[in-house]
Design a protein around this nucleic acid. Structure first.
Lengths: 255, 255
DNA sequence: CGCTGCGTTCGCCCCTGGCGAACGGTCGCG
DNA sequence: CGCGACCGTTCGCCAGGGGCGAACGCAGCG
């Protein structure tokens, strides 16, 4: 993972490499960072101090650091500036009209999926409205699988968090989940069948983006509905629609 | 706004100052950045290129740049690592039990408030469930006002976006909103009365954080309910509860 | 009690990173 | 049309900043 770095603007590259370290470990001190990035301990110490003074990192007891609030704010700003909502709203509304079920846009937050937006069809069961989750475990949701299959960092977090059982259908065996993720990569979309809640199924596709770091999923589009109806409609057809919507959002994001 | 910068680790400080530039303007080129930060145009050009190569920024047509997806991902990571949910869930659940109404946690995204989590009381009207907003205009929501009152950058965005009318009670006069924000700062909490939807009122308090940059709001806790019930309960009492919850989250965030 | 690890501090010396100038392109106005 | 103003990019230079290593003080542990 390390090495092969363009080292123009050395210190700037180092700074962001340091940020990347915190993707894997919540809290780090200068020594660990120095080891990880391949710089002198003293340099790491200085770097961390500067970044902490800007709120990018947060200094904790004992000279260790963690990601700071400023980063969280930058994220909100980026979310806004990338026009994620403006881009996705018409696409998701269109998808909802096609599948006539609940459509959601979710992003990974740790080992959970946080739903940012939701589009409800007219003919939905009322019981859905009552049980309106904001966050769900990634391993037992189609959105989570869609993202994890195309984002190693997320997958790692999911496996590390552990696969807790939600229903008797929930996949809790890591090996089994790995196989599922392989299938997801092959098919291009993910699904769950009563794994989060009995009687409820879902289909999701990853929103993929491409940049210098490669291709990875940053979000997912999902369709949720009663297992009976989703099965009747055929997850294949829905899968295609969901995939199309997610793909279009990905394209627009990078435009 | 500029100047008075600690200039140890010059280039790193510059890099993050550049990021700050994009808080105000969506898209910038080297010249503009150089002017803003006070560096040479060539330096800005190089910096932007490096940051773009890391996905922090995104290069657009014509050598201009905007915030990149990587920043969005860092934000998600920070959200996770700051334990915002773990911290807020018990506090919000407690608040819900006190006020026995809908409790929400929201963050600013541009001129809108995005609700991250929601806690519903048992005795809620069913109509609420149907109309479950994810995002609302900041100017006509109590959460938006709570954040804007304690975060100049957000306030700026809100005023620039324009105050669109939602109901006949919506405050659409910028001057009037300014006065309201002053009141919010004085009282410590914000409220709206049928401004987003007729018959619905809300009370919100800012989640404040303190660091080297000063004090500012990064989120808001709000209580929403039928205007009748909220008025009966007295917004003052609810305000105190909401303020307390928001305060506790803020404290825990910086712990 | 030593040993190992941590985080911090200091001084040095080299190299990188910031600067200014020059270049090519584009736009808009006279 | 052509000039000028502005843009983004590139180049070479030179100095001072920054990364390094060593030394320090401190915990934790065997």
């Amino acid at each position: 993972m390390a090495a092969a770095e363009e080292d123009s603007l050395r210190s700037v590259s180092i700074a962001f490499s340091i940020l990347d370290c915190f993707a894997l470990t919540p809290e780090l001190g200068p020594s660990a960072v120095a080891r990880e990035v391949g710089i002198a301990k003293s340099t790491a110490s200085r770097m961390l101090a500067v970044m902490a003074s800007r709120g990018i990192l947060e200094r904790r007891e004992g000279g260790r650091y963690r990601l700071g609030l400023r980063l969280f704010e930058y994220g909100q700003l980026a979310l806004f500036r990338l026009n994620l909502f403006e881009i996705s709203v018409p696409i998701l509304a269109d998808l909802r009209d096609r599948v006539r079920d609940l459509v959601q846009l979710g992003i990974p937050v740790g080992a959970e999926i946080l739903f940012l937006d939701r589009f409800e069809a007219q003919n939905l069961d009322l019981r859905f409205h009552g049980e309106a989750w904001r966050r769900v475990p990634a391993h037992s949701s189609s959105s989570g699988r869609a993202v994890a299959a195309f984002n190693p960092a997320v997958a790692r977090t999911v496996f590390e968090a552990g696969l807790i059982r939600r229903t008797r259908y929930t996949v809790v065996d890591p090996r089994r989940l790995s196989e599922i993720l392989v299938q997801v990569r092959e098919r291009g979309y993910a699904s769950t069948d009563e794994e989060l809640e009995e009687g409820i199924s879902s289909v999701a596709a990853p929103v993929l983006v491409t940049d210098e770091q490669g291709v990875r999923a940053v979000a997912a589009v999902s369709v949720v509905g009663p297992s009976r109806r989703l099965r009747r409609g055929g997850t294949g057809t829905i899968g295609a629609h969901v995939q199309d919507a997610a793909h279009r959002i990905g394209i627009a994001l990078s435009a």
